[in-house]
Nucleic acid binder design. Structure first.
Length: 271
DNA sequence: AACCAGGCTCTCC
DNA sequence: GGAGAGCATGGT
């Protein structure tokens, strides 16, 4: 068991980072949170004058929490957009987690037209049904393990009408399919993701942002429409294009600030 | 009891 | 390409 210590607490807010809808496998634990990714686990907490992350795989979680990126510089770049000020201040310590693309694919197919508490529940049920028993928790199932689940199995996990999408997506998402995405330009990756059952524009953007660290994208969900819609004829597609153009290579992080701020100032009836 | 949730697919135009 | 219906489930 190793420990990562973050001495400057302004570098990472655990609450804002974990509770802004980019990750579904975490829970309040002790002084902080238990966080799960693939078959790994970390315990992250505020230790007074620093943040600590304990794990059997600190290398993995150092990368996972995106600790090697200079957010101070990124935030300085975004500070030119005065309209972002309030949202940025509200979600100051948000970092974009670098999660596994396959886990993100499955998770965000589940997320469609769904709410965060129930998304968490369904994903946990899928882990319980097919994931490796790690002793004190279950791993996220591998693709091979998910190939063993039928539509009825996904439905039994509470996936509802997404069950057939999940079963089909697992079949499409071979290791080659995932591996081939890495070197491709974002728009090409997005095109390929859109060809998968259950993945539309919004889900594709979330996979790009949270699973492939592509920040040049801008997921638009119901919350973003509430926050950014300018007229009756303003569609999700138009909003996406507008803000992608505006925030460029930092659009994804800007989107997280806005999403987090909108949910924290009106509603968020969960947890 | 309608409405909503990190929307998508399918059909019809 | 864009508009509309239908979709499981659980919470207000």
């Amino acid at each position: 068991m190793g420990t990562i210590t973050i001495f400057d607490k302004s570098e990472l807010s655990l609450a804002d980072t974990l509770e802004c809808g980019q990750v579904f496998r975490y829970r309040a634990y002790g002084k902080g949170y238990e966080v799960f990714s693939l078959d790994k686990r970390a315990y992250a907490y505020d230790d007074g004058d620093c943040i600590k992350i304990e794990s059997a795989d600190t290398e993995y979680f150092g990368h996972y929490f995106d600790l090697y990126r200079d957010y101070r510089a990124v935030r300085a770049s975004l500070s030119e957009f005065s309209e972002l000020g309030t949202a940025m201040e509200c979600g100051k310590g948000i970092r974009l987690l670098r999660q596994d693309p396959f886990e993100m694919m499955i998770s965000f197919i589940v997320s469609a037209n769904n709410n965060i508490p129930r998304i968490k529940k369904i994903i946990e049920a899928i882990c319980d049904m097919a994931g490796k028993n790690m002793g004190e928790y279950r791993a996220f199932p591998t693709r091979d393990e998910l190939l063993g689940m039928t539509e009825a199995d996904f439905a039994a996990c509470g996936a509802g009408y997404r069950a057939p999408y999940l079963a089909a997506a697992v079949r499409t998402a071979s290791e080659e399919f995932i591996r081939e995405l890495a070197p491709l330009p974002t728009e090409e990756v997005r095109k390929r993701l859109l060809s998968v059952s259950g993945i539309g524009p919004k889900v594709a953007d979330c996979i790009l942002l949270f699973g492939l660290a592509r920040w040049d994208t801008f997921p638009v969900d119901t919350w973003m429409i509430k926050a950014l819609k300018e007229s009756d004829s303003d569609t999700g597609k138009k909003i996406r294009a507008r803000y992608l153009e505006k925030y460029g290579r930092f659009a994804g992080l800007a989107q997280q600030y806005i999403f987090h701020w909108k949910r924290n100032t009106e509603g968020k009836t969960d947890d």
